[in-house]
Nucleic acid binder design. Structure first.
Length: 411
DNA sequence: TGTCCACTGGAAGGGAGGGCTT
DNA sequence: AAGCCCTCCCTTCCAGTGGACA
């Protein structure tokens, strides 16, 4: 190898032995530890599909990282395997966080049955009714049992209502040759409260809850993957238990545990170490947490960044919590300064609520008696880091070292 | 006990931007 | 080109409200 800039980074020895993607949450192993019960239960419902009958619709609940998605994809793989010697079943999976409109869902499902590129449903332009009719026609032509898994279905409902689900639940009335069953996957146990009663009862013919993993179970999951990913003795004995324990504290999130293991190994590798230690795990945990925050801020739209900057600058002056009115004044000042369009206060309150949901600020409604009722807003991420990221923005970069003119009423 | 503040948050709707159909 | 449809971002309007204070 020539002397190149990469020379110093080329490792003679690595902690990884093969494909490190086995540590990614998206990897579906051949065996899913501690989910046998759920898999069997699902299989017992879905087996009717292989007999040409329509299986019951199913709702799966469970917090993030409890293996819902992995389980459903695993089931999907098994269905594909089984259908080679049994009746025709078609399994399809869709994440409603990515496709989150009525039209989008119907269009995506429809296009999975249209081979000819020219006949595909365009991503906009048609009426929803027309997309639905096309979808129904194409599904009927297949003469199969179709199992549709909708992941993060609560996101779809909260954004676009339950019309699509209504359509999908009663599509069987309009089908002559094919049958459709829907598997809904949700993080939120309560989301069915917002559904039309007919949709609710139809969708929850069967319900299953995925409990969080405990530390011991997480340890098994990590060990299974570690065997595939790492060289022997690349991990100190305490590394896996530590990752498992830390993730178990956060409602048993397996995704977190895997990320932590992967990132700590990457940290060790970058430092040219041949084994991963506990301190790498701690570093990894901090890095992951910070990365989440900076990524969330970086991808914020301009107006939201502007609002966040308003919160930040006010807090920087040591004024602590601020009200909607104060924030709006500050925000207006920043907009003028950067010649950005000023939105209405109504809109700003919505954006503040969004920031709250992202966990970037903490906002709660508080009454000051005669002083009125308003939101009390404070930053809930490290301000130095937040500021650094916001200032990367072209427009907000102008506000570097900016001193506020506006005096808040909270003193 | 009633008043009143400074909002909150729902509803409705406008209009821009994407694209199809006739 | 005109007439549609759907989504996104936003404005306008407004009834509702928790609690300090008179």
């Amino acid at each position: 190898m020539q002397d190149t800039i990469f020379q110093q980074y080329i490792r003679t020895k690595s902690v990884f032995k093969g494909d490190r993607d086995v540590l990614r949450p998206s990897y579906i192993p051949d065996v899913l530890p501690h989910r046998e019960e759920q898999i069997n239960q699902l299989a017992s419902v879905l087996v009717s599909a292989l007999e040409g009958q329509r299986p019951s619709n199913i709702l799966l609940f469970g917090k993030t990282g409890t293996g819902k998605t992995a389980t459903i994809k695993y089931i999907g793989k098994e269905i594909e395997r089984a259908r080679s010697d049994l009746r025709d079943v078609h399994f399809l999976y869709m994440n409603c966080e990515i496709v989150d409109t009525q039209y989008g869902v119907l269009q995506n499902i429809g296009n999975m049955f249209i081979e000819d590129f020219d006949q595909r449903i365009p991503f906009t332009g048609w009426s929803t009714e027309r997309v639905y009719n096309m979808l129904r026609e194409k599904i009927d032509e297949t003469r199969r049992v179709i199992v549709i898994a909708l992941d993060e279905i609560d996101k779809l409902v909260s954004k676009s209502g339950d019309d699509v689900l209504y359509h999908l639940c009663r599509i069987n009335d309009d089908l002559k040759n094919a049958k459709v069953s829907v598997i809904g996957i949700s993080n939120d146990l309560k989301f069915t409260e917002f559904l039309d009663p007919r949709v609710k009862s139809s969708l929850s013919e069967e319900k299953m809850v995925f409990p969080p993993y405990n530390a011991e179970q997480l340890r098994d999951i990590l060990s299974q993957r570690a065997k595939l990913a790492f060289e022997d003795n690349a991990l100190e004995a305490s590394v896996i238990p530590l990752c498992a324990a830390l993730a178990a504290q956060e409602h048993g999130d397996a995704r977190r545990a895997l990320d932590m293991l992967r990132v700590s190994a990457e940290i060790a590798e970058r430092n040219h170490m041949t084994s991963v230690t506990d301190s790498d795990v701690v570093k990894a945990k901090n890095k992951i947490e910070l990365d989440c925050v900076t990524e969330a801020i970086r991808t914020l739209p301009l107006q939201s960044k502007m609002i966040l900057m308003g919160v930040l600058l006010t807090e920087e002056r040591g004024l602590g919590k601020l009200t909607t009115g104060d924030l709006y004044e500050t925000y207006k000042e920043l907009c003028e300064c950067t010649t950005t369009t000023v939105l209405t206060q109504r809109r700003v309150t919505d954006l503040v609520s969004e920031l709250d949901m992202l966990g970037l600020v903490h906002a709660r409604v508080k009454s000051f008696g005669r002083g009125g009722r308003t939101k009390e807003i404070e930053l809930s991420v490290p301000s130095m880091e937040a500021k650094r990221v916001i200032e990367e923005d072209e427009v907000l970069g102008q506000l570097k070292n900016y001193k506020l003119r506006f005096q808040t009423t909270l003193m």
